[in-house]
Every structure is written in C-alpha cells, then in structure tokens.
C-alpha cells in the first residue's frame, strides 16, 4: 500500500494543554474504505484527536498524514462533521443554507452560490430524508434533524475521508439508523469514515475497525479482534461493567425520544 492510498496516518501525536497531556503518543493508521470507530471514555481526548488531525488545535509533537500528505494539501478530500453543540442553532439561516456551506470550499472566494449548488444541497438533504425541511430555519429542528443536516453537509462535500465527532449523540433511533445507512453507502463508494462513538452496544455492528483511546491508543485493529472485554476494561478502567454501559445507553435513547 503506498502512503497516498492511506487515508489517515497518525504518528506520535501528542497534544497538551498547559501541562496536562490530552492525548499522548497516539499512533494509528486507517485503511481505505473502512468505517472506523474511535471509542473511549469522557476526557479521553477523542474530539481533540480529530481537531489535531485538522490543525484546529496546536500539536505538541507528532505527524499527521492524510492521503500521504499534510492536511493543508489534501484539505479538499476531508469532510468534518463537528459536534452539534459547536454551532449556534439560533443563527438566521435555513437548513438548505447550512448544507450549501459544504460546497463553499470548492467554490472559493467571492464566487456566489448558484442554482446548481443549491440543487446539489437539496439532493443531499433528500438522501438523509430531510428533503421536505430544506426551507426551515435551523432553530426549529429536533436534535436528530440537526445531526442529519450536518450529515447532508458532509455529503455535499464529497470528501474521501470523513471525520465525525459523535454523530450519534442523543439522536432518535430512526436518525441513528439513517446515519448508519449513509455511512455504509459511503463505505460502498470506497470512502473512509472515522467516527467518534459512545454507545458500546452498537460498536461491533457499525464499525469495521476501532481505535480504543484513553489519552493513548489502548488498542487498534479490526473490530472482531480488538473490541474485547479485556481491551474495553483497559480503556474504560477496572470499574467498567458492560451492564452499566448498556443501561446508560438505554437511558440516553429514552431521553432522545
């Protein structure tokens, strides 16, 4: 495999705020055409890892290669789906406007948004089952619909590598299913997605391979090999019980109804 075909390669990555390391000597490769889950407890540095990959936070040391080059060079090939809370949902824009933003990078400076772009955005919205809500102001969306909007925005970016920060957090079951289907379609089209995920229940179901992260990589590899109870304990600490996790997941799903 040549470096240029490896979507994401992280070497020796360390990020520290003040004196506290957030992630520590993180090292892993992602193979193309895979759905990769990043699993770890709160405060394990999952979001920081994604942000450090995209130079959104300063790295203390280490190297990140995206398709064999630095992120700046291959920026167009990366789609980022941030956490829902990262934006102001009172902002005066419509759903379609938000999705169209995914095309801005390709448009470049000064060029206005044209009809064809809006149509592409509309098509992406239909793929995530939100075609009818295109004109709606974003504050009127439910949590699941907000997440679908972000997903549609990632879809129009037509990237080869997607970095998603907790797309499944507090969404309804239908949205979760829709997102999973889209992810599988992406995989079928040869794209790679690196997804931060919380619900240990569904990991084996959704992902081809996982990175277990707790400040450092505890284990990485095919889900069937790596996603073991023993490794989970090493990631989540001795106190983890799957039962606890499962009840927590259930509670979350109930709340999102």
């Amino acid at each position: 495999m040549t470096p240029a075909t490896i979507p994401l390669s992280v070497q020796d990555l360390t990020v520290a705020w003040h004196r506290k390391p957030v992630i520590w000597d993180v090292q892993f490769d992602v193979a193309p055409g895979q759905l990769v889950g990043i699993i770890g407890p709160n405060g394990a540095g999952k979001s920081t890892l994604l942000k450090a990959i995209m130079d959104l936070v300063p790295r203390t040391s280490g190297r990140v290669e995206i398709f064999g080059g630095p992120w700046k060079q291959n920026r167009q090939r990366v789609g980022y789906v941030p956490q829902r809370e990262s934006v102001d949902w009172d902002f005066p824009v419509s759903v379609l406007d938000v999705v169209t933003m995914g095309l801005y990078g390709r448009l470049g400076w000064f060029r206005p948004v044209r009809k064809q772009h809006r149509e592409a955005a509309q098509r992406a919205l239909e793929r995530v089952g939100m075609g009818a809500l295109a004109g709606r102001q974003i504050s009127q969306l439910s949590g699941g619909q907000q997440q679908r909007t972000f997903l549609a925005r990632a879809l129009v970016q037509d990237a080869d590598l997607y970095l998603m920060d907790e797309p499944f957090a507090a969404v309804d079951a239908a949205t979760e299913q829709a997102i999973v289907e889209i992810l599988r379609e992406m995989r079928a089209a040869g794209k790679t997605a690196v997804v931060i995920h919380h619900d240990l229940h569904t990991v084996a179901d959704y992902f081809d391979s996982v990175v277990l992260l707790n400040m450092r990589v505890v284990a990485q590899g095919a889900t069937s090999d790596v996603f073991t109870r023993e490794n989970l304990e090493r990631t989540y600490g001795g106190r983890l019980t799957l039962l606890e996790e499962a009840t927590e997941a259930m509670r979350r799903r109930e709340r999102s109804l």
């Binding site: 990589v217 095919a222 490794n231 001795g238 106190r239 019980t241």
Partner: peptide, 24 residues
C-alpha cells in the same frame, strides 16, 4: 495491532474491581 501480542495484554485488575467487571 496491539492486541495480538499476548505477552503484554494480561493486565490484572485490582482485586476489588474484578468481581464487578466479571459480573457485568
């Protein structure tokens, strides 16, 4: 992958925790 190295993967739990994790 890290897990294939059998030599290092056997991390023992502190005794108090093991019962709980086994139970779950």
């Amino acid at each position: 992958p890290l897990t294939t190295s059998t030599e290092h993967s056997a991390v023992e739990r502190p005794a108090t925790d093991s019962a709980a994790s086994r139970g779950g």
